[in-house]
Structure formats: structure tokens, C-alpha cells
Amino acid sequence: MIRLVSVIVLVAFLAITAAVKMLGIQSDARKSTLNSIASTMHTTSEIVHTKAIVNGLTSACYIYKDETTLRAFIEGIYICNGYPTAHIDNVKKAFNISEDLEVNNRMKDGGRIAYVSFKEVTYHTDNITKMFSVTPKCYVSYRDAKKTSDPKVYDVQVELEEC
């Protein structure tokens, strides 16, 4: 009887240890996926920008609401200032985002930011400073190139704190 209880306790301990390790593997896989998406965003943005230079579209901007404006795009990817826009459908298409991932976006400082995450992104706005934060902190953000005067015309950030 004592041997049976000992074996059961030992097997339970091993199961708990394995479960904890498996959870760590899932977190590492999520972090790796988001880092890979960020790399794809950088590479694709630079390739699209090079093609925009060749086609003379570095100052054109695709505008969704205005049907009379030049609709700038490179190979089906909508661009602004030569880089992909951060609209949800464009981010999915340009960066080949899996259907398993969530893509949301938000306007900030005249530009659009797209968030790619595993879970639904929730925005929290401070009414005094008008600053906002995003939870959970496990996402990639892509800010489109709305201002040509900025030295950094697009921006990709990876947040892996809560993966």
C-alpha cells in the first residue's frame, strides 16, 4: 500500500513538472511567432518602399474614404509615403498574418497603429493625459508612415511582457 501511494505521488509530481514546462514552451512559441512577424514587417516594408521608389510613388498615399484621390498601391498592398498602411485588411495581406491571430488598429497622432496579437487587444485611455495602453502586453505594433518629415517613417514595436 505504501509503495502504491509513493508511486502515485511521484507520478503526480512528474505530471505537475511537465505541465509547467509545457506552459513555458507555449510562451516561448508565442514570443518567437511575434518576433518573426516583426521581422516580416521590417523586410516587407523595405521591399515595398524600394518598389515605390522605382514606381515614383513615395509621396502618394492611399486614402480609403476619398474615391477621387490617387489610390497608391504596390502589388495589391496599399501604401502611404512608400510604405504599407496600417489598416487591418492591408496588414493581414501585406505581412501575411495568419487567421489565428487578431489584428486591431487605432489612430494616434495623425497616424494609424495596427496591433497583431493572440488575444483580443483592449485599449485603456487616461482621460487626463490622453495616453493609452494596450493589454495583454503580448503583441506586435506597426505604425504606418503618415509623416514624411520623420526620420523613422514607419515603426514596428514588439511587446512580449505577458506572453
Score class of each variant (00 low, 15 high):
M1K: 09
R143K: 07
D66P: 02
C80V: 00
V134Y: 05
F118M: 01
G76R: 03
S36T: 11
A72D: 09
N105C: 05
L101Q: 08
N96C: 04
E102H: 15
D109W: 11
V91T: 05
V20H: 15
F118Y: 15
F13I: 13
I25S: 13
T135D: 09
Q26Y: 14
T125R: 13
T135H: 00
R112Q: 07
N90F: 02
K130R: 15
Q26S: 11
V9C: 13
T68K: 15
I74A: 07
S45V: 01
T85M: 05
F132D: 01
T85H: 06
I74L: 11
D150E: 12
Y62A: 11
L70V: 13
E75N: 15
V140A: 02
D28P: 00
V91C: 01
N90D: 07
T135W: 00
E67W: 10
A52C: 10
K51I: 09
S98I: 02
R3Y: 14
N55G: 10
S6C: 09
L160Y: 03
A18P: 04
T40C: 04
E162G: 08
D155G: 04
K130C: 00
D150H: 12
E120L: 11
R112H: 05
T33H: 07
R71K: 15
I113E: 03
R30Y: 14
P84R: 04
Q26N: 06
T135K: 10
T69W: 02
I2Q: 14
T125G: 05
D89E: 07
E99Q: 12
I16M: 08
L57H: 05
L34F: 07
F73P: 04
P84L: 03
V91I: 08
K147S: 11
K93S: 06
H49Q: 10
